[in-house]
């Protein structure tokens, strides 16, 4: 299941941290069109690790320049939910 609050948070990062114009943030825009390159993608993962305590692998399957924003944020959110689940399971 997709973590809707996390998708909203990632959208806010694109808007506020990367300063992408709100009108450019369309669900069907690709990361390439948004100028989210591999350095920017690594920045997203570092912010999640620093501020949310979510550690993701450096590359996620299906995530690249041609991925749309909607698909990309869903892939990151699903991976984050899985990581959280594993952490929660380990804690139990």
């Amino acid at each position: 299941m997709t973590d809707q609050p996390l998708v909203a948070r990632l959208e806010a990062l694109l808007r506020d941290h990367f300063e992408i114009a709100p009108e450019a943030l369309r669900p069907d825009a690709t990361f390439r069109e948004l100028e989210i390159d591999s350095l920017a993608m690594a920045e997203i993962l570092a912010i999640l690790e620093d501020e949310d305590g979510i550690t993701l692998p450096p590359t996620l399957p299906g995530l690249g320049g041609d991925t749309t924003m909607a698909d990309g944020l869903r892939i990151i959110a699903e991976a984050a939910a899985q990581t959280r689940g594993e952490t929660a399971g380990a804690a139990r």
Binding site: L39, A42, E43, A46, E49, D50
Partner: peptide
């Protein structure tokens, strides 16, 4: 601080650039 704490994955990849 992150470096000193060993929180390497939390360091910004923009630090060099």
């Amino acid at each position: 601080t992150k470096l000193a704490e060993g929180r390497f994955g939390a360091m910004t990849p923009s630090l060099v650039a």
